[in-house]
Amino acid sequence: MMTAVGEPPELKKYSGTQRAAALLLALGQEHGIPIWQQLNDDEIKELSSSIASLGRVPAVVVEYLLGQFSGEVSSITTLHGSYETTERLLEGVLAPERVKDIMEDIRGPSGRTMWDKLSNVSEGVLAGYLKSEHPQTVAVILQKLKPDHAARVLAALPRDFGTEVVMRMLKTETVQKDVIVQVEQTLKTEFMTNLSRAQRRDPHETMAELFNALDRSTEEAMLGALDEKAPEEAERIRALMFTFEDLSNLLPSAIQVIVRNCNKRELALALKGAPEEMRRLFFGAMTERAAKLLRDDMAAMGPVRARECEAAQGNLVTLAKDLGERGEIVLADPKSDDAMIY
Protein backbone atom coordinates (compact mmCIF):
# COMPACT_ATOMS: atom_id res chain seq x y z
CA MET A 1 0.00 0.00 0.00
CA MET A 2 1.39 3.41 -1.02
CA THR A 3 1.68 6.14 1.59
CA ALA A 4 -0.47 9.18 0.84
CA VAL A 5 1.11 12.62 0.65
CA GLY A 6 1.30 14.17 4.08
CA GLU A 7 0.34 10.96 5.82
CA PRO A 8 2.11 10.74 9.20
CA PRO A 9 4.26 7.62 9.73
CA GLU A 10 2.32 6.83 12.93
CA LEU A 11 -0.79 6.16 10.85
CA LYS A 12 0.67 2.97 9.41
CA LYS A 13 -0.04 0.95 12.55
CA TYR A 14 -3.77 1.73 12.44
CA SER A 15 -6.12 -0.52 10.46
CA GLY A 16 -9.01 0.88 8.49
CA THR A 17 -11.44 0.13 11.32
CA GLN A 18 -9.13 1.76 13.86
CA ARG A 19 -8.85 4.88 11.70
CA ALA A 20 -12.63 5.09 11.44
CA ALA A 21 -12.90 4.57 15.20
CA ALA A 22 -10.39 7.35 15.94
CA LEU A 23 -12.23 9.72 13.61
CA LEU A 24 -15.60 9.04 15.23
CA LEU A 25 -14.08 9.44 18.67
CA ALA A 26 -12.65 12.80 17.63
CA LEU A 27 -15.95 13.93 16.10
CA GLY A 28 -17.75 13.17 19.35
CA GLN A 29 -21.50 13.14 19.84
CA GLU A 30 -22.48 16.38 18.13
CA HIS A 31 -20.71 15.81 14.82
CA GLY A 32 -20.81 12.02 14.93
CA ILE A 33 -24.56 11.49 15.38
CA PRO A 34 -25.43 11.55 11.63
CA ILE A 35 -22.79 8.88 10.99
CA TRP A 36 -23.74 6.60 13.91
CA GLN A 37 -27.39 6.70 12.92
CA GLN A 38 -26.56 5.29 9.47
CA LEU A 39 -24.75 2.23 10.86
CA ASN A 40 -26.26 -1.16 11.61
CA ASP A 41 -25.73 -2.95 14.93
CA ASP A 42 -22.82 -5.10 13.71
CA GLU A 43 -20.99 -2.02 12.37
CA ILE A 44 -21.64 -0.13 15.60
CA LYS A 45 -20.33 -3.04 17.65
CA GLU A 46 -17.21 -3.36 15.49
CA LEU A 47 -16.43 0.36 15.70
CA SER A 48 -17.32 0.52 19.40
CA SER A 49 -15.02 -2.39 20.16
CA SER A 50 -12.24 -0.68 18.21
CA ILE A 51 -12.78 2.62 20.06
CA ALA A 52 -12.68 0.82 23.40
CA SER A 53 -9.29 -0.71 22.58
CA LEU A 54 -7.68 2.31 20.88
CA GLY A 55 -5.78 3.65 23.84
CA ARG A 56 -3.84 6.83 23.12
CA VAL A 57 -4.00 8.27 19.58
CA PRO A 58 -1.22 10.73 18.61
CA ALA A 59 -2.39 14.22 17.68
CA VAL A 60 -0.78 14.02 14.23
CA VAL A 61 -2.95 11.02 13.45
CA VAL A 62 -6.05 12.76 14.76
CA GLU A 63 -5.33 15.89 12.72
CA TYR A 64 -4.68 13.90 9.56
CA LEU A 65 -7.90 11.89 9.94
CA LEU A 66 -9.99 14.93 10.66
CA GLY A 67 -8.66 16.76 7.62
CA GLN A 68 -10.81 19.84 7.20
CA PHE A 69 -11.39 19.94 10.99
CA SER A 70 -7.66 20.00 11.78
CA GLY A 71 -7.91 23.59 12.98
CA GLU A 72 -10.41 22.59 15.66
CA VAL A 73 -8.24 19.80 17.00
CA SER A 74 -4.79 21.34 16.60
CA SER A 75 -4.55 21.90 20.35
CA ILE A 76 -5.40 18.33 21.20
CA THR A 77 -2.34 16.32 22.15
CA THR A 78 -4.01 12.91 22.38
CA LEU A 79 -7.34 11.14 22.52
CA HIS A 80 -7.99 8.23 24.82
CA GLY A 81 -10.37 5.49 23.83
CA SER A 82 -11.76 3.26 26.58
CA TYR A 83 -14.93 1.40 27.45
CA GLU A 84 -16.07 4.41 29.47
CA THR A 85 -15.54 6.98 26.69
CA THR A 86 -17.18 4.61 24.22
CA GLU A 87 -20.24 4.22 26.42
CA ARG A 88 -20.54 7.97 26.99
CA LEU A 89 -20.26 8.56 23.25
CA LEU A 90 -22.97 6.04 22.39
CA GLU A 91 -25.32 7.30 25.11
CA GLY A 92 -25.70 10.56 23.24
CA VAL A 93 -26.41 8.79 19.96
CA LEU A 94 -28.44 5.63 20.60
CA ALA A 95 -31.30 4.41 22.77
CA PRO A 96 -30.22 3.17 26.25
CA GLU A 97 -31.22 -0.44 25.46
CA ARG A 98 -29.04 -0.51 22.33
CA VAL A 99 -26.11 1.03 24.20
CA LYS A 100 -26.40 -1.59 26.94
CA ASP A 101 -26.54 -4.49 24.47
CA ILE A 102 -23.62 -3.17 22.45
CA MET A 103 -21.41 -2.52 25.49
CA GLU A 104 -22.18 -5.95 26.94
CA ASP A 105 -21.28 -7.50 23.61
CA ILE A 106 -17.95 -5.71 23.16
CA ARG A 107 -16.97 -6.20 26.78
CA GLY A 108 -18.10 -9.82 26.65
CA PRO A 109 -16.93 -12.17 29.39
CA SER A 110 -13.49 -10.52 29.58
CA GLY A 111 -12.78 -10.49 25.85
CA ARG A 112 -12.98 -8.22 22.81
CA THR A 113 -13.48 -10.80 20.05
CA MET A 114 -15.65 -13.91 19.98
CA TRP A 115 -12.53 -16.06 20.38
CA ASP A 116 -11.35 -13.98 23.36
CA LYS A 117 -14.76 -14.49 24.93
CA LEU A 118 -14.74 -18.20 24.21
CA SER A 119 -11.33 -18.55 25.84
CA ASN A 120 -12.90 -17.34 29.08
CA VAL A 121 -15.59 -20.03 29.07
CA SER A 122 -14.72 -23.10 31.15
CA GLU A 123 -13.76 -26.20 29.20
CA GLY A 124 -16.61 -28.21 30.76
CA VAL A 125 -19.30 -25.75 29.68
CA LEU A 126 -17.80 -25.34 26.20
CA ALA A 127 -17.34 -29.09 25.69
CA GLY A 128 -20.94 -29.66 26.78
CA TYR A 129 -22.10 -27.40 23.95
CA LEU A 130 -19.63 -28.61 21.30
CA LYS A 131 -20.30 -32.34 21.71
CA SER A 132 -23.64 -31.87 19.92
CA GLU A 133 -22.06 -29.95 17.03
CA HIS A 134 -20.59 -31.37 13.82
CA PRO A 135 -16.95 -32.50 14.26
CA GLN A 136 -15.85 -30.16 11.45
CA THR A 137 -17.39 -27.17 13.22
CA VAL A 138 -15.69 -28.17 16.46
CA ALA A 139 -12.38 -28.54 14.62
CA VAL A 140 -12.68 -24.99 13.27
CA ILE A 141 -13.48 -23.63 16.73
CA LEU A 142 -10.64 -25.46 18.50
CA GLN A 143 -8.15 -24.22 15.92
CA LYS A 144 -9.13 -20.65 16.77
CA LEU A 145 -8.70 -21.11 20.53
CA LYS A 146 -5.45 -20.85 22.44
CA PRO A 147 -3.71 -24.27 22.43
CA ASP A 148 -3.86 -24.81 26.20
CA HIS A 149 -7.59 -24.03 26.36
CA ALA A 150 -8.31 -26.07 23.22
CA ALA A 151 -6.48 -29.03 24.81
CA ARG A 152 -8.64 -28.87 27.94
CA VAL A 153 -11.82 -28.68 25.86
CA LEU A 154 -10.67 -31.63 23.72
CA ALA A 155 -9.99 -33.70 26.84
CA ALA A 156 -13.52 -32.95 28.10
CA LEU A 157 -15.18 -34.20 24.90
CA PRO A 158 -16.32 -37.85 24.53
CA ARG A 159 -13.29 -39.90 23.45
CA ASP A 160 -14.59 -41.11 20.07
CA PHE A 161 -15.98 -37.70 19.20
CA GLY A 162 -12.71 -36.03 20.25
CA THR A 163 -10.73 -38.40 18.02
CA GLU A 164 -12.94 -37.49 15.07
CA VAL A 165 -12.37 -33.80 15.79
CA VAL A 166 -8.59 -34.36 15.85
CA MET A 167 -8.78 -36.14 12.46
CA ARG A 168 -10.69 -33.15 11.04
CA MET A 169 -8.12 -30.74 12.47
CA LEU A 170 -5.29 -32.70 10.85
CA LYS A 171 -6.99 -32.64 7.44
CA THR A 172 -8.23 -29.06 7.60
CA GLU A 173 -6.20 -26.59 5.59
CA THR A 174 -6.90 -22.84 5.45
CA VAL A 175 -10.48 -22.22 6.55
CA GLN A 176 -12.37 -19.80 4.33
CA LYS A 177 -13.26 -16.50 5.92
CA ASP A 178 -16.99 -16.89 5.29
CA VAL A 179 -16.93 -20.19 7.21
CA ILE A 180 -15.26 -18.48 10.18
CA VAL A 181 -17.84 -15.68 10.06
CA GLN A 182 -20.68 -18.20 9.96
CA VAL A 183 -19.27 -20.13 12.93
CA GLU A 184 -18.78 -16.89 14.88
CA GLN A 185 -22.38 -15.88 14.18
CA THR A 186 -23.66 -19.28 15.32
CA LEU A 187 -21.62 -19.07 18.52
CA LYS A 188 -22.96 -15.61 19.16
CA THR A 189 -26.63 -16.30 18.47
CA GLU A 190 -26.83 -19.76 20.04
CA PHE A 191 -24.10 -20.40 22.57
CA MET A 192 -23.04 -17.01 23.98
CA THR A 193 -26.61 -15.72 24.20
CA ASN A 194 -27.77 -18.81 26.09
CA LEU A 195 -24.66 -18.69 28.28
CA SER A 196 -25.34 -15.06 29.13
CA ARG A 197 -28.90 -15.92 30.13
CA ALA A 198 -27.76 -18.89 32.19
CA GLN A 199 -25.22 -16.76 34.02
CA ARG A 200 -27.77 -14.17 35.11
CA ARG A 201 -27.83 -14.65 38.84
CA ASP A 202 -30.60 -14.49 41.35
CA PRO A 203 -30.02 -11.23 43.27
CA HIS A 204 -30.46 -13.24 46.46
CA GLU A 205 -27.30 -15.20 45.57
CA THR A 206 -25.38 -11.97 45.17
CA MET A 207 -26.67 -10.68 48.50
CA ALA A 208 -25.81 -13.99 50.18
CA GLU A 209 -22.19 -13.61 49.03
CA LEU A 210 -22.19 -10.00 50.21
CA PHE A 211 -23.48 -10.99 53.65
CA ASN A 212 -20.90 -13.77 53.83
CA ALA A 213 -18.20 -11.14 53.44
CA LEU A 214 -19.54 -8.96 56.29
CA ASP A 215 -18.22 -9.20 59.81
CA ARG A 216 -20.46 -11.21 62.13
CA SER A 217 -22.03 -8.30 64.04
CA THR A 218 -22.85 -6.32 60.87
CA GLU A 219 -24.23 -9.43 59.20
CA GLU A 220 -26.53 -10.19 62.13
CA ALA A 221 -27.66 -6.57 62.38
CA MET A 222 -28.43 -6.33 58.66
CA LEU A 223 -30.28 -9.65 58.52
CA GLY A 224 -32.16 -8.74 61.69
CA ALA A 225 -33.32 -5.48 60.11
CA LEU A 226 -34.26 -7.36 56.94
CA ASP A 227 -36.26 -9.84 59.04
CA GLU A 228 -38.50 -6.98 60.12
CA LYS A 229 -38.95 -5.37 56.72
CA ALA A 230 -38.89 -8.39 54.37
CA PRO A 231 -38.79 -11.70 56.28
CA GLU A 232 -39.19 -13.86 53.16
CA GLU A 233 -36.23 -12.14 51.48
CA ALA A 234 -34.11 -12.59 54.61
CA GLU A 235 -35.00 -16.28 54.75
CA ARG A 236 -33.98 -16.80 51.10
CA ILE A 237 -30.65 -15.04 51.68
CA ARG A 238 -29.95 -17.13 54.79
CA ALA A 239 -30.67 -20.31 52.85
CA LEU A 240 -28.13 -19.32 50.19
CA MET A 241 -25.41 -18.19 52.56
CA PHE A 242 -22.48 -20.54 53.14
CA THR A 243 -21.05 -19.95 56.58
CA PHE A 244 -18.24 -21.32 58.71
CA GLU A 245 -20.76 -23.47 60.57
CA ASP A 246 -21.76 -25.07 57.25
CA LEU A 247 -18.29 -26.60 57.01
CA SER A 248 -19.43 -29.08 59.67
CA ASN A 249 -21.75 -30.64 57.05
CA LEU A 250 -18.89 -31.54 54.71
CA LEU A 251 -17.44 -35.00 54.33
CA PRO A 252 -14.30 -35.67 56.43
CA SER A 253 -12.29 -36.04 53.23
CA ALA A 254 -13.38 -32.53 52.19
CA ILE A 255 -12.22 -31.15 55.53
CA GLN A 256 -8.86 -32.85 54.93
CA VAL A 257 -8.53 -31.04 51.59
CA ILE A 258 -9.29 -27.72 53.28
CA VAL A 259 -6.73 -28.41 56.02
CA ARG A 260 -4.06 -29.27 53.43
CA ASN A 261 -4.65 -26.04 51.52
CA CYS A 262 -5.21 -23.51 54.29
CA ASN A 263 -2.84 -21.19 56.11
CA LYS A 264 -2.19 -22.91 59.45
CA ARG A 265 -2.19 -19.67 61.47
CA GLU A 266 -5.56 -18.79 59.89
CA LEU A 267 -6.82 -22.27 60.86
CA ALA A 268 -5.62 -21.81 64.44
CA LEU A 269 -7.35 -18.43 64.67
CA ALA A 270 -10.56 -19.79 63.13
CA LEU A 271 -10.72 -22.74 65.54
CA LYS A 272 -9.79 -20.52 68.48
CA GLY A 273 -13.24 -18.94 68.19
CA ALA A 274 -15.09 -22.11 67.12
CA PRO A 275 -17.25 -24.41 69.25
CA GLU A 276 -15.64 -27.61 70.49
CA GLU A 277 -17.59 -29.78 68.06
CA MET A 278 -16.13 -27.85 65.12
CA ARG A 279 -12.64 -28.13 66.59
CA ARG A 280 -12.99 -31.91 66.90
CA LEU A 281 -14.07 -32.11 63.26
CA PHE A 282 -10.90 -30.37 62.05
CA PHE A 283 -8.57 -32.13 64.50
CA GLY A 284 -10.03 -35.44 63.31
CA ALA A 285 -9.02 -34.60 59.74
CA MET A 286 -5.37 -34.20 60.79
CA THR A 287 -2.65 -36.53 61.93
CA GLU A 288 -2.26 -36.80 65.69
CA ARG A 289 1.02 -34.88 65.57
CA ALA A 290 -0.40 -32.08 63.37
CA ALA A 291 -3.44 -31.78 65.64
CA LYS A 292 -1.19 -31.47 68.72
CA LEU A 293 0.92 -28.78 67.05
CA LEU A 294 -2.21 -26.86 66.13
CA ARG A 295 -3.55 -27.07 69.69
CA ASP A 296 -0.21 -25.81 70.97
CA ASP A 297 -0.34 -22.88 68.52
CA MET A 298 -3.86 -22.00 69.68
CA ALA A 299 -2.82 -22.08 73.32
CA ALA A 300 0.27 -19.96 72.63
CA MET A 301 -1.89 -17.26 71.06
CA GLY A 302 -3.47 -16.33 74.34
CA PRO A 303 -6.56 -14.10 74.19
CA VAL A 304 -7.48 -12.93 70.66
CA ARG A 305 -10.11 -10.51 69.44
CA ALA A 306 -13.37 -12.05 68.24
CA ARG A 307 -13.18 -10.15 64.96
CA GLU A 308 -9.80 -11.77 64.19
CA CYS A 309 -11.33 -15.22 64.66
CA GLU A 310 -14.32 -14.29 62.51
CA ALA A 311 -12.05 -12.97 59.77
CA ALA A 312 -10.05 -16.21 59.79
CA GLN A 313 -13.27 -18.23 59.66
CA GLY A 314 -14.42 -16.15 56.70
CA ASN A 315 -11.13 -16.88 54.91
CA LEU A 316 -11.64 -20.61 55.45
CA VAL A 317 -15.12 -20.33 53.94
CA THR A 318 -13.65 -18.49 50.94
CA LEU A 319 -11.03 -21.22 50.54
CA ALA A 320 -13.75 -23.90 50.70
CA LYS A 321 -15.70 -22.12 47.97
CA ASP A 322 -12.58 -21.83 45.79
CA LEU A 323 -11.86 -25.54 46.24
CA GLY A 324 -15.47 -26.29 45.39
CA GLU A 325 -15.30 -24.24 42.19
CA ARG A 326 -12.11 -26.09 41.19
CA GLY A 327 -13.86 -29.43 41.74
CA GLU A 328 -11.52 -30.52 44.53
CA ILE A 329 -14.38 -30.74 47.04
CA VAL A 330 -18.16 -30.68 46.73
CA LEU A 331 -20.04 -28.24 48.91
CA ALA A 332 -23.12 -30.40 49.27
CA ASP A 333 -25.03 -32.38 51.82
CA PRO A 334 -22.81 -35.42 52.57
CA LYS A 335 -25.92 -37.63 52.55
CA SER A 336 -26.59 -36.62 48.94
CA ASP A 337 -25.61 -38.99 46.12
CA ASP A 338 -23.82 -36.05 44.51
CA ALA A 339 -21.46 -35.51 47.43
CA MET A 340 -18.23 -36.92 46.03
CA ILE A 341 -14.61 -35.93 46.38
CA TYR A 342 -12.58 -35.78 43.18
Rank of each mutant, 00 (worst) to 15 (best):
L331F: 07
V62Y: 05
P109D: 10
G81D: 00
E228C: 02
L154G: 00
A274D: 08
I329V: 01
Q29E: 15
T172H: 05
S336A: 15
C262V: 08
E84L: 12
A198P: 04
I33E: 13
G128C: 05
L25H: 04
P135N: 07
F242C: 02
S217A: 12
D322P: 02
C309T: 14
D215T: 02
E220N: 14
G224C: 07
D101V: 08
A26M: 05
M241T: 03
V93S: 07
Q256H: 07
E46R: 15
V153C: 01
L210C: 00
V259Y: 08
G108R: 11
G314P: 11
E87D: 10
L66Q: 04
M114K: 11
E325L: 02
V61L: 06
I237W: 10
E30V: 00
S15N: 10
G16M: 12
A52S: 15
A270R: 11
P158V: 01
E232R: 13
M301V: 04
D42W: 11
H204W: 07
L214P: 03
M222C: 15
D322H: 08
A155M: 06
P275I: 02
A332I: 04
L47G: 11
A320Q: 03
L27M: 08
D202F: 11
F283T: 06
E228F: 03
V121R: 01
P8C: 09
P334D: 12
G327S: 03
V175Y: 04
T113I: 06
E245Q: 13
R200V: 13
S119P: 00
A300V: 11
E277Y: 13
A234G: 02
A254L: 03
A306Q: 14
F242G: 01
E87W: 05
D215K: 11
P9I: 03
Y14T: 02
R56M: 12
G162Q: 02
K12T: 01
K229W: 00
P231W: 03
E123W: 01
V57S: 05
I329D: 06
E219N: 09
I141K: 08
S50Y: 08
L187A: 10
L54W: 07
R159C: 00
L281D: 10
A230D: 13
K45T: 14
R98D: 14
S336L: 12
Q37A: 09
L251K: 15
K177Y: 13
P147K: 04
E190V: 09
E277T: 12
